[in-house]
Write a protein that binds this DNA or RNA. Structure first.
Length: 296
DNA sequence: CCGATTACCTGCACGC
DNA sequence: TGCGTGCAGGTAATCG
């Protein structure tokens, strides 16, 4: 589920319930996810008020009023869901679904909104590649986030900056775009989609999209634009839902219906008049989907 | 420094 | 029906 657009969608789903709410208690149902949960997590958060929900790259940040920031990463299979009312009368949730889900409910935040409504925010993660961290001095200062590159949102990432980042790199372009120290928030899906939109091959050496120093590169311009646009489009569509729900309210993202290449091996390229067939290769141990005809 | 590989963990689809 | 295999949106550690 979670690349930047999915995490942003989760943030927007949780925000109306969590911002301004007070944390009554926190249940940690196991001591660790990918890493041990923060020391005394429940004690640190109980009784505190949530001032804001933020996001940096694929990290969700839960800011505590006058206190620390809880940093959450969803890994590959992590999700949050919002519950209210008694657990025995959850509407629309079948028994077998509830029990299948509950086996991987690892952390539960019990909240009370300013109006008195009670909510449970449940973190579920079957594979436990997710993790939570507590940062005392702001999320950005935490070592795990300090080295992150530019956000592919807004207009910071332009052709000039992208060209500079790629210049001299011999790794495949796909691998460089996945490097969170350069651009923070892209994952396997959106790298594939951005490269298709830019008409660039994932196999090309990253440095070949850079112009000589001080000059502009049409390839870098096209790719920077494609990255910004695909991320914006995906956020607008509520992210992509593959095997899991992306949204805290259980609804589905829609961007998977817009995939041009991801998981489309053997299917026709969607670029008008291209006529190519989407291919799947493996790069650094992960699937890459692209059109060998129009992506050079 | 850079790039490639492996490890982490569970669930699911597939072929036999 | 069951079993082995491979694959899945993530990052960190390790090895050349």
């Amino acid at each position: 589920m979670p690349e930047l657009p999915e995490v942003e969608t989760v943030r927007r789903g949780l925000q109306p319930v969590m911002e301004g709410a007070r944390i009554l208690s926190v249940e940690t149902r196991r001591p660790d996810l990918r890493f041990p949960l923060p020391e005394n997590l429940a004690e640190r958060l109980s009784g505190q008020t949530i001032s804001a929900l933020g996001r940096r790259a694929k990290y969700l940040t839960i800011e505590i009023e006058g206190g620390p920031v809880l940093i959450c990463h969803l890994g590959m299979s992590g999700s949050f869901r919002i519950e209210t009312g008694a657990e025995s009368e959850m509407p629309g949730v079948f028994h077998h679904e509830r029990s299948r889900n509950a086996a991987h409910d690892h952390v539960v935040f019990h909240l009370v909104a300013p109006g008195g409504t009670r909510w449970r925010i449940v973190f579920n993660d079957p594979r436990r590649f997710g993790f939570m961290l507590l940062a005392e001095a702001g999320a950005g200062a935490h070592p795990m986030l300090a080295g992150l590159g530019v956000e592919p949102t807004g207009n910071t990432l332009d052709g000039e900056l992208l060209g500079e980042m790629m210049r001299g790199r011999k790794a495949p372009l796909k691998a460089a775009l996945l490097d969170q120290r350069l651009i923070a928030g892209l994952g396997n899906i959106y790298v594939a989609e951005a490269l298709w939109r830019a008409g660039l091959s994932p196999r090309r050496a990253a440095g070949t999209i850079a112009a000589s120093p001080g000059k502009t590169s049409a390839r870098a311009d096209r790719l920077a634009t494609a990255i910004r646009e695909v991320i914006a489009d995906a956020i607008e569509a509520g992210g992509s839902s593959l095997r899991d729900y992306a949204h805290a309210d259980g609804s589905l993202g829609m961007f998977q219906h817009s995939f041009a290449v991801y998981d489309r091996a053997g299917e026709p390229c969607r670029k008008p008049a291209c006529g190519g067939t989407i291919n799947r290769i493996v790069q650094s141990g992960r699937s890459t989907f692209y059109c060998p005809t129009c992506q050079r």
